[in-house]
Computed example of a mutant assay.
Amino acid sequence: ADVVPAEMIAKMGDAPSKGCVLVLQGLSGTGKGTTVAKLQATLPRAVSWSNGNVFRSLTLLAVSYCAAKAIEFNSEALTPELLAELMKCLEFGKFNDKFDIRINGIGHDLLVSEVANTTLKEPRVSKAIPTVAELTQGEVIKFAEAAAAAMSADGMNVLMEGRAQTLDYVRTPHRFELTLAQPLVIGQRRAAQRMMASALTVLKDIEAPTETQVFAALKSELEKMASTA
């Protein structure tokens, strides 16, 4: 787990000492999160950027607007004009001596770092994110690019991870992609996760399930998956 981050840092030369943007892309299950955590612990002044918080912030504003106007929240309500106004309610900069996103408008004045795991995780926000995200990809991309540029100019090392489709817009010479020698491992991992989740549900009322019971629960889910493949 330490080899890949070390090779990436070596290829970046002296860029981390000045501040830069590092893009790490790859499919789910290739180890992006683990690698970013290692890089963040190793590089000076490193910060991990998440577009998810921007989408959640926009969604909070959108559902709040619809509630205030007593209109139904749906894609039709999210006109280009409204989305442009909501984007103006988001500001990236230094607040309390650290970079943050300020949500200021539609009855809110919040810092994302303070509400990322509370207000932005409320059900009204979570269930509405897909609708907002589908309509605001371009806006969030521009916001993220500007934020990354501001942080790197301040000497910070910005770590951005995700799929290539969402990171192609980032201008940086420090771009890496994680792959697996055996891509089938990703599918096997997901299958194992589904089997375990199902087994836990089946066995939740058994205080100390036996090995035989665990095996039977896993086998049952595997057979269900195979029958629908």
Rank of each mutant, 00 (worst) to 15 (best):
I141A: 08
A149K: 11
F143N: 02
P173R: 11
A146C: 04
A147E: 10
P173W: 12
F143W: 02
N157H: 04
M160V: 15
I141K: 08
D154E: 14
A144T: 07
S152G: 06
E139F: 07
T166S: 10
A164S: 13
A149W: 01
A148M: 11
K142A: 14
A164I: 13
H174P: 03
S152A: 15
V140R: 00
Q137L: 15
V158A: 05
Q165T: 06
H174R: 04
F176A: 12
E139V: 08
N157V: 03
A147P: 03
V170L: 14
R171H: 12
P173N: 14
Y169Q: 08
M156V: 01
E145V: 04
N157Y: 01
E145P: 00
K142I: 05
T172M: 05
G155M: 10
I141M: 09
A149T: 12
G162I: 09
R163D: 12
G155Q: 06
Y169A: 15
A149N: 09
L159V: 03
G138D: 09
A153V: 06
T136G: 04
E161W: 00
L178V: 10
F176K: 13
E145I: 04
L167F: 09
E161H: 01
F143R: 05
I141P: 00
E161L: 06
A148S: 11
Q137F: 04
E161C: 08
Q137K: 13
M156E: 10
V170K: 01
A153K: 08
E177W: 00
E145H: 05
S152Y: 04
E177T: 11
E177H: 00
A144M: 12
A144K: 01
A153M: 07
G138E: 06
V170S: 03
R171I: 12
M156R: 14
A150E: 13
A146D: 13
